[in-house]
Each structure stands twice: as C-alpha cells, then as structure tokens.
Amino acid sequence: MFPLRGLTSTPLPPLHLKTSHPLPPLNAAISTAITNKFSISDEDLESRGFNLHREIADLNLDHLNKVFVAVGFPRRDPQKIRLALENTNSLLWVEYKKTQKPVAFARATGDGVFNAIIWDVVVDPSFQGIGLGKAVMERLMEELLEKGIINIALYSEPRVLGFYRPLGFVADPDGIKGMVYSRKKNSKR
C-alpha cells in the first residue's frame, strides 16, 4: 500500500478478495496444503537469511518507520505506530538476520469474524523483487482465511495493482464503490 499523493476527485476503490461463496474455516490438513504452496517456504526464507515474525515483540519501530519512509509513506510517530500495532488483529514481518532489521511488513485489522482490511504492505526497496512482499501477503491471507474471514479488502496505488491480482484481489467485485473520508486542511491566505 502506498499513500495517495495530491488531490484526487475520486478515491481509489478498495480491492477485495474474489470469492464466489463463503469459505469454511480451514482445517489442519488444508492449512498444511496451503503452507506447502507458498511461493517461498519458511525454510527457504530462513536459509536465505530471513526470520518471519507474527508479533510486535522485537520489532524496532524506528527501523520499521525507515522502511515506511523508504517506500513513500510519511514518517509516523513511533508511539502511534505502537498503538496501531497493539490494535492490529494480524501482522507479519520479515527480519533480515544480518542486520536484525525489518525488511518486509504487512498487517490486517478487522472484526475478527467477517471483515478485514490489509494495511501497510511494505518491502524495503533494497529487498524488493525477491519475493518478500508475496511471502508476507500469502501468509497473512492464509491466517485470515483460516479464521473464516472472507471479506478482505486493501487499498493500493494503481501502480502496484498488478502485484495483488495474482493473490486473488480484484477491484470492485460486486460493483461496490469504496469511499474515503477526507478532511481538508485549512489553507492560510
């Protein structure tokens, strides 16, 4: 996800996971089958020098903020990042072992039953193109689907829509138009 820049007359619609019918919660056998279908296995990630994490423990928020800034997000207050993460239902981040810094990150918020929204999908530009973004998205999606959540949305800039389509996301699957509340800043005269 990337922040919108400048003024737009029409907000971008959210992307939703394409499903034609509700999916039941996944059992252990199905979960194992999906795990084996990851584009990069956990073992391969580890052998390439990466650790996967699903909790905010050991996540250096200043380093995460540097990744946010590197991909074009505004710098965020670390205390607000911590609060946001404490109110996040699911998150996954990848640490590069050599530096012990986060290099890929994604999180999802929602009601834990019906709906989830994926936020802050980022990969450090130095590590883009090697499958880390896909690795975090595949695992985050698996976790949400295992909980039985099938209405999964995310916001994305048009230039990266192609990344999400192979993961099952489509724009406006039911013709629903997303809207975003936008508070205009007072301009000084």
Rank of each mutant, 00 (worst) to 15 (best):
D174N: 12
V94F: 09
N89M: 09
H63V: 05
G148M: 03
R48P: 01
S31C: 14
M137L: 05
M179R: 04
F169E: 10
W93L: 05
K66F: 00
P158C: 13
P14R: 01
M1G: 14
P25C: 07
P166N: 08
V103E: 04
P25A: 04
Q100P: 00
D174A: 11
L7Q: 09
T19P: 03
L167W: 08
D44S: 14
L23W: 06
P11I: 02
N36G: 12
W93R: 09
H16I: 00
E46C: 06
R189G: 07
T35R: 13
D77N: 15
S187Q: 14
T32W: 05
Q128T: 13
P13G: 14
R183F: 15
E146F: 00
E146H: 06
P78C: 06
A70H: 09
V103H: 13
K184D: 15
R75Q: 12
E43Q: 13
V136D: 04
N186I: 14
A28K: 15
I176K: 07
G162L: 07
L64Y: 03
E95L: 07
R48W: 06
S47W: 00
L7F: 11
E95N: 08
G72H: 10
A106W: 01
R139W: 06
V160K: 08
E157Y: 01
T88Y: 10
L154T: 01
Y96H: 12
V170D: 13
L52D: 05
L64W: 07
G110A: 01
F105K: 10
K18W: 09
G129D: 09
G133E: 05
D120R: 12
D62H: 13
L59C: 09
L167I: 05
G129L: 03
A135D: 08
I150V: 10
K80Q: 13
L161N: 01
I150L: 03
L15C: 13
K101L: 04
G178S: 10
P74R: 10
D124S: 14
P25D: 04
P78R: 11
L167E: 08
P78S: 05
T8Q: 12
V67D: 04
P125T: 06
Y164M: 05
F2T: 14
R165C: 02
A153T: 06
T32S: 11
F169Q: 07
T8E: 10
L92W: 03
I56P: 12
N151H: 07
D77P: 02
D42I: 03
F114T: 10
K37P: 00
P125D: 07
K147V: 00
A33C: 15
S126Q: 13
A57K: 12
F2G: 13
M1L: 09
F2A: 12
G148D: 02
F68K: 05
G178Y: 00
P74D: 11
A104E: 00
V160G: 04
M137F: 04
S47I: 06
P173I: 02
T88I: 07
F114D: 00
L52N: 00
D120N: 15
F163G: 03
G72L: 10
A153D: 02
K37E: 15
K66A: 15
S182M: 13
L45K: 08
A171L: 09
V71D: 06
E146T: 12
N87G: 14
L85M: 15
N115F: 08
S20K: 14
N36P: 02
A29L: 12
P173R: 05
